[in-house]
Design a protein around this nucleic acid. Sequence first.
DNA 1: CGGACGTTTGAGCATATTCAACTGCGGTGG
DNA 2: CCACCGCAGTTGAATATGCTCAAACGTCCG
Lengths: 267, 267
Amino acid sequence: MVTEASAVRESAVATEVIDFNALRKSCGSCALAQLCLPASIGADDLTRLDHLVQQRKPTDRGTTLFDTGSSHARLYVVRSGSFKTYVDLPDGDHQVLGFHLPGDLLGLDALPSERHRCSAEALERSTVCEVPFNDLSVVASKLPGLQQQLYRVMSDQFALEQEHMVMMGRRQAPARLAIFLHSLSERRKRLGLDPLELNLSMSRQDIANYLGLVIETVSRLMGRFQTAGVLEVERRIVRIRDMDALRAMAHGGDTPTDTQKSASSSS
Amino acid sequence: MVTEASAVRESAVATEVIDFNALRKSCGSCALAQLCLPASIGADDLTRLDHLVQQRKPTDRGTTLFDTGSSHARLYVVRSGSFKTYVDLPDGDHQVLGFHLPGDLLGLDALPSERHRCSAEALERSTVCEVPFNDLSVVASKLPGLQQQLYRVMSDQFALEQEHMVMMGRRQAPARLAIFLHSLSERRKRLGLDPLELNLSMSRQDIANYLGLVIETVSRLMGRFQTAGVLEVERRIVRIRDMDALRAMAHGGDTPTDTQKSASSSS
DNA sequence: CGGACGTTTGAGCATATTCAACTGCGGTGG
DNA sequence: CCACCGCAGTTGAATATGCTCAAACGTCCG
């Protein structure tokens, strides 16, 4: 067997919080293992999976991992950095489908024989693991645990898209932005990062496209949230100062101009 | 003796008139086989799949196939009739996620160990085939063709949701309705039904919830489309009189009163 | 220092919502 | 058989939310 994790040739990549020495070796030692495919499969199964996984040299900001129409069926796991997936609209701009943080999977929309229906672009210098889907499928068919995990992440993906649709559905602009920020905060918490300090790697334009709004609206709302004391906005750094208020606005109608809505600043 | 060709074609899938003898026997003899899981798997493999599939007694209008939070992992294939999937919103109403016609799969959002994140309700008296997901998974792991097909339908599901998001994204109300009607027409064509005569099994409220609009807007737009000569609306029967105009409006061309519409896509 | 870009801010406008009344059809019961 | 009620859908007028257009701002980079 070809034992070596054939990707240790990559030199260290700078990111703030992630320990790349631990990451680089194998799925077994990956800090994201619990979030990724290997979660809950045995040690020797892990080895078989390890052989499929290819490392990629860092993807630069603005570079696409795959494009709409391409058909190389591969799954990607974000290791560091972040991506956006989007489709091009006839009128020139994009519909952003999602933002993808470490541990998230990309490429589920082009399973074998299908073509990608969206593009995935790095929002900053990022690294991914890459798995040829056909190989993964073969191994998974022999490892019920892995197979189950594969179904689970696909199921999760459906859940994410459904959430997105609910948000776009009939919610007002302030609620949309609140949902977005709150969800980002939750995801950071899950990654072990500070949930109160968001480091937005995406532009305002991306956020607007994701929320189904226009950039000016997003900008104005950021301002309103700040004057309302909910956020502290400093370009792409956003600090959440009143999580309860943010949550409240995400869940329903709320006017952020109303500064004193209910003296709530507990956490 | 009012026997029209269109009526006969309609009856191939319409609820009341289904030939249950032909349908009930097996996947091999099912009129929907090409659209369903069995597509492109061999004859003996089909037998193994057949044993997993359970028939269900017809589901009455308003009855749910599964509800948010329930966790029996089963896949359903719509045989006749139609369903809507939706999530309940805190403020009382629903966000409709999709409408499901014969050949469509339901239940992909609650693969093993997960709970359903939406509910599925019959819009009329409908029938489904039911497959326990765990059993299907086991069989599929031994039949690469079936496995591939399973991935394919999941991939298709992602594509559908993405389309929905694009529509909700930044499109104006007329374009949304046009997309909805056009998509319905396409799906009818794929089922061998008359693509020009839509028999809406869902209420205006459902349509509005699906499109992210309010019921009045949908109603008004139906009217506008009719006076523009694009549609002929008769309660829940909608006939498409100008498919090109409908398509144009779906792509962003506005002004349903304007018959002249042949602009090329700009960038 | 200048130019470009991403972002913010402002004023006016248009689209879709809200609120409200009304229609037509279907069912139910007198 | 008809009168009644109820529900789904339609229509109208007024409002408001988010968009368009436009300009200014700050920061990054040459």
